[in-house]
């Protein structure tokens, strides 16, 4: 379980987040939605200890993310940001192998190799494993980063807008794979998504944020409603049914 209590964050004089209290249960896919600047990514990066909050506590499992040993935490919690620019030239397999670093400290044992194979297989990257990252398309590269995070074999996986810059097909594939990671591998997946319909279609729990606060938390069916979405996004939203799932329509 991820427990956020009384968390706040300011960027200089700009109020970014909080105070926020939130519990994300173990297992399943949780989606964070909300307009730009609502504090979704800020909260996710604080939970992932890439940023420190001004006050409040964040616990992942039974570890406090601020005080816990970073190495131990890296076996429990993995976070992937949307920008991953680095000049190091690595093959897909080498990158995914680095995901084993918290366990292997660089010396790959048989179970590390197995975890890498599994992650590559899981994201259909096995045929591409010896290609260099700069030879891949955007969607393939994104998959390689997700494979690295999965190879880390953490209970909790946080992803900041993993669908950014992906076309329809790749976005759907990515969400399916994250869903499978939750169902088949037992990971707790927390994603920030811009498209509420991906949250509606794949998430067990949806957290809607506005102005640094949590507006609504609940199963997709309870949060993806015309009333909630219109209030959260500040634009008229209609919700229709498609294959037993709510779909938001907001183009008019």
């Amino acid at each position: 379980m991820i427990t956020v209590s009384n968390l706040t964050k300011r960027y200089g004089s700009v109020h970014a987040l909080g105070p926020v209290d939130l519990e994300i249960p173990r297992g399943g896919v949780t989606a964070l939605i909300g307009p730009n600047g609502a504090g979704k990514s800020t909260m996710l990066t604080i939970i992932g200890r890439l940023l420190s909050g001004d006050s409040g506590r964040v616990e992942v499992g039974d570890l406090d993310v601020v005080t816990a040993d970073s190495r131990e935490l890296a076996k429990k919690l993995a976070i992937l940001r949307q920008e991953n620019h680095f000049v190091a030239r690595l093959t897909v397999r080498q990158l995914v192998g680095l995901g084993r670093f918290p366990h292997s400290r660089g010396r790959m044992r048989p179970d590390d190799v197995e975890a890498v194979d599994l992650a590559l297989e899981f994201l259909d990257l096995t045929p591409l494993q010896d290609r260099f990252l700069d030879e891949l398309s955007g969607g393939q590269r994104q998959r390689a980063y997700v494979a690295m995070v999965l190879a880390q074999q953490t209970d909790y996986v946080l992803l900041d807008e993993p669908l950014n810059n992906l076309d329809m097909r790749h976005a759907v594939t990515m969400m399916r794979q994250l869903r499978r990671a939750a169902d088949e591998l037992g990971r707790t997946v927390v994603v920030v998504v811009h498209d509420v319909n991906f949250a509606a279609a794949y998430a067990d729990l949806v957290v809607a944020m506005v102005d640094g606060r949590i507006a609504h938390v609940g199963p997709a069916r309870e949060v993806i409603t015309p009333y909630v979405l219109t209030e959260v996004f500040g634009t008229p939203v209609d919700v229709i049914e498609h294959r037993d799932r709510p779909v938001a329509v907001y183009y008019h």
């Binding site: 890439l50 935490l73 680095l98």
Partner: peptide, 21 residues
Amino acid sequence: RRHVLDVVSLGRETAISLGVA
């Protein structure tokens, strides 16, 4: 430290996520 250097070269955020100070 060569393996740590590999991780560090992935940038701050990935390195921290992988448990490197």
